[in-house]
Structures are given as structure tokens and as C-alpha cells.
Amino acid sequence: MTRAGAKFWVGAAAVMLLALAATAILKNEYWFYAGFVVLQFVVLATAWNILGGYAGYVNFGTSAFVGAGTYAAIVAIKALAAPLGVQILLAAGIAGLLGFATGLLTLRLRGIFFSIATVAVAIVLETFIVNWRFVGGSTGIQILRPVDTGLFGSYTKMLFLVMVGLSVAAAAIARTLEISWIGRGLRAVRDNEEAAESCGVPTLRLKLIACTISGALMGAAGAPMAVYQSYIEPASAFSLNYSILALAMPIVGGTAHWSGPVLGALLFGTLQQVVSATISSELNRLVIGVMLIVFVVGAPAGIVGLWRKWAAKRAGAGSP
């Protein structure tokens, strides 16, 4: 294992231990309730970036994959009374399949067609769920949390730890992809797809792999929503917020490196919790829109890019 690799895994282990310690020490449930949401966006932003950042294909319909995951979990609960682990796996499978199908349909076309198609998938899927009585239709469905609170004292703490695990897994997957031949191929696709294709890079296959993994991770992040909210309706499961934030977070954080979306999600997710709760969710969206434009215009490499530039300058000034 390389030195950077060892550093990553030590860091990942530290994060998990820290989270575990927090559940033992902190008494106020709110922290875990809010932390769950922030971490869910870490997973979503990381997943979005696998296709959007590495390959340059913009997904406008993250909500389709999150919603698919949530409703896959609901079906797993209603039809099979499945435990949370099975719900997440099933949700990842279904959403991954959805990603694969969407990719197969549109990834041969120019990028914007893929973007528009993802919006279309979100709306069509929501319409089907609205008209599907088994999962509650448009009025929604009540999901009872298991009475057993498990090892961690409360169910919310348990869900929080699950999301910590998913976040670390997502970052690890993104990082592994990034430094592998797949990541190199995807970057070639982003920089010049025609050139990559003519050099023998299997562009379509790479894009399909990225789209499937990205979709599966989004589905996995959506699955615990069923028991987290305990009341699910299509309008919230397919909320536009997912699509907007999953796109804005990596662009602000930086799309070239796996840490960009993580940073963007932690920053934006926390801001979102504070501003939505204290001022208004509209203002929150306005801030997102403005930040999006400021960053694509002024700092296309995001916060990570700015930091690197600053570090390089400092290193340059420091050496004789």
C-alpha cells in the first residue's frame, strides 16, 4: 500500500472511531439527527462527483436515485420485513440498475442530453410512485421503526453511524476509482472524449461503470430515509433539494479530487442546517445558486483547487 493510501485508511478509521465515541458521549439526539442529513449529502455529493467530476457528465436528477433507494427500502420493509442492511443493499442494487439503464439510453449522446434525461427519469419515476398504491401513492406511507434500539442506545444514533459508514465507504470507492485505470479513463473522457475514444479508451463502458456506481451509492444513501423519517411521501423522497445540492457541493468543493465533494458537503450541509432552521429555505437556495455561479466563473477547481494553488504559491515562495 502506498503512503497516501495508508494515510487515507488511518483517517477513515479515525473518523469511524470518533463517530462511535460521539454516540457514547453526546446526549442530545439533535446532533445525530442533523448529522445524518449532512452525512447523507457527503455520500450524495461523492456519488455525483464520480460521474460529474471525473467524467464531466452532469446529473440533474440525483433525486431519482435517492427516491428509488428510499422506495426500494419501503418495498423491502413491506413485502419482506427486511432488516436495514438488506434494505440498503437492495436499494443500491435497484438504483445502480437505474443508473445503468439511464446511462445506456443516453451516454452515447452529448452531455446535456444525459443531464436532461436524468431530470426526466426523476419525474417519470415519481409519477409511477404517486400512482402506486402499494407504497402509499401520493399521500405517502407510515414506516414503523423497530422497537429494538440495538447496541447504540437509540435508533437515531444507530442510523447516524450507518451513514458514517456509508460516507466512508463512498469516499473510499471514489478514491479507489480515482487512482485506478477507470479514473484515468474517465478523466480522458472529460478532457476530450473523441480523442480518448480514438486512442482506444473504452469510453462507453467506463461511463456506464461510473453511472452505475454513482447511482448505486445514491440509492444506498436514500434507503435509510424510510426509517429515519418514518413517514415518506413521493414529494419529499424525490425532493429537488437532492438534485440541486448534490450538484452544487462538488462544484464548490472541487471536482478533481475525492476530498472536494466531501468538503463541499460538510460545508454546505452544515450551512444548510443552520440557514434553513434560522432564516429560510428559500434564502438557502439563493445562496446555493449564487455560490454555484461564483465558483464556476471564478474558481472552477473549487475550494480544493484554491487551497492547492495557495499551497503551491507558499511552497514556491518558501524555496530559495
Partner: peptide, 23 residues
Amino acid sequence: ATGIGSLAFFFGVALIIEVGLIM
């Protein structure tokens, strides 16, 4: 012209218009 930045740019413009109208 067709990269991720330009899509995000127009997406941002749409978002600002929508939220502006709501506000």
C-alpha cells in the same frame, strides 16, 4: 462551451430566478 461549468452556470441562473420569484 459544453462542459460541466457551463451547465452549472445556467442551472445556477435558473435557481436564482426561481428562488427570486418565490421570495
